[in-house]
């Protein structure tokens, strides 16, 4: 993958890519940790509570406390579990989430200033690997991400885990269809699979945003994104009220934490895709152009928390009904109409 990248963009060096990868890993991990804090705070505010307040000012150091707790907790592996798979599963979730982020433009291009020894003057690209099929790659990696919960549930010799794994397979497989089909209509309009082309297509301002042309696709993508990131209205994989904790029942410590980091990284990925594909993305010319996309990503992230505070869960049969009888026909009809419009 890196070979094609180096061929495509001559000014990008391997060092720059590695720096970018490290930045993504570090920053997104930190944001994922911070996301838990934001989620608690927002949910608390919406329930007129204060949320975490004790550790640090306004509870800001709660992340550190959580991290210490997760790292020092006993790492329990059940006796009858398939130990190797049990240990690998959370890594799959986290790894696929971060690999998906590698082809998403998250941070701006920048050049490391000259005064820093060794790395001075290195160009760090905005996308770690600028595949010209970026969107499909992200969707594919998120599809591969279903193995985390699936293997976790199947390896732990626990009936709740098996139910969680079955729900993983059903939910992710079904909603991948909706994600792909809903994003197909914008792809047809733009005629490219690259995030950069999407961004350039909508560069003319708010009026040219994809939302106005493809409102149905936008809504469908959001719904499917909620299902793919296992967020609340479709939080059936680890729904405490039904299956104790679903696939994560037997997990503790940092292995459980890795599921969490993966989930939050996936939330960020879905937010970034929604922001770039539907809400105009970033503005490469303006100096503060990157602030706009961060605001958009923040809006989608907040929307996920907001929805969690407001809406109830659905039943698994309702979830399948929604996917196959409502969303998928809508997506197909949307594609058909878009195709007719594009052709005519």
């Amino acid at each position: 993958m890196e070979t094609t990248l180096v061929e495509n963009l001559p000014q990008v060096t391997a060092v720059g890519v590695i720096i970018k990868a490290v930045i993504i890993l570090a920053v997104i991990s930190a944001i994922a940790g911070f996301g838990t804090f934001v989620e608690r705070k927002v949910l608390a505010f919406m329930q007129r509570r204060l949320g975490p307040m004790h550790v640090g000012p306004y509870g800001l150091l709660q992340i550190a406390a959580d991290g210490i707790k997760l790292f020092t907790k006993e790492d329990i592996i059940p006796q009858n579990a398939n130990k190797l798979i049990f240990m690998i599963a959370p890594v799959i979730t986290a790894a696929t989430a971060f690999i998906a982020l590698s082809s998403v433009p998250v941070f701006p291009d920048f050049i490391i200033p000259e005064f820093i020894p060794l790395l001075g003057g290195t160009f760090v690209p905005s996308i770690a690997s600028d595949l010209n099929i970026g969107i499909l790659f992200v969707l594919g990696m998120m599809a591969a991400g279903l193995y985390g919960p699936l293997l976790a549930g199947m390896s732990q010799a626990n009936k709740w885990g098996i139910i969680g794994a079955a729900r993983t397979a059903v939910q992710f497989l079904s909603y991948e269809v909706v994600t792909g089909l809903s994003i197909l209509a914008p792809i047809m309009l733009v005629g490219s699979l690259s995030f950069v082309d999407f961004n350039n297509y909508q560069a003319a301002g708010i009026g040219s945003w994809m939302v106005w042309q493809q409102p149905v696709a936008f809504v469908l993508f959001l719904i499917a994104g909620f299902a793919e990131t296992n967020r609340t209205p479709f939080d059936l994989l680890e729904h405490e009220a039904e299956v104790v904790s679903g696939y994560a029942t037997e997990y503790s410590g940092m292995r459980w934490g890795m599921f969490f980091i993966g989930e939050y990284a996936n939330m960020i990925t879905i937010s970034v895709i929604a922001a770039i594909v539907f809400l105009g993305g970033y503005d490469p010319e303006a100096t503060l152009g990157w602030l706009t996309i961060i605001l958009k990503i923040g809006f989608f992230f907040f929307l996920m928390l907001w929805v969690r505070a407001a809406w109830p869960h659905v039943r698994p049969d309702q979830l399948m009904w929604l996917c196959w009888k409502v969303l998928m026909p809508l997506a197909v009809v949307n594609i058909l109409i878009t195709a007719i419009v594009v052709m005519v």
Binding site: F137, L146, M154, L173
Partner: peptide, 25 residues
Amino acid sequence: VVQLIVYVGAIMALYSFAMMFFDAT
């Protein structure tokens, strides 16, 4: 990407769904 989405994301996941019938451990 098709390999990722179709083979890994769909076909293997379907197999694993069939595996739920047995005790996988």
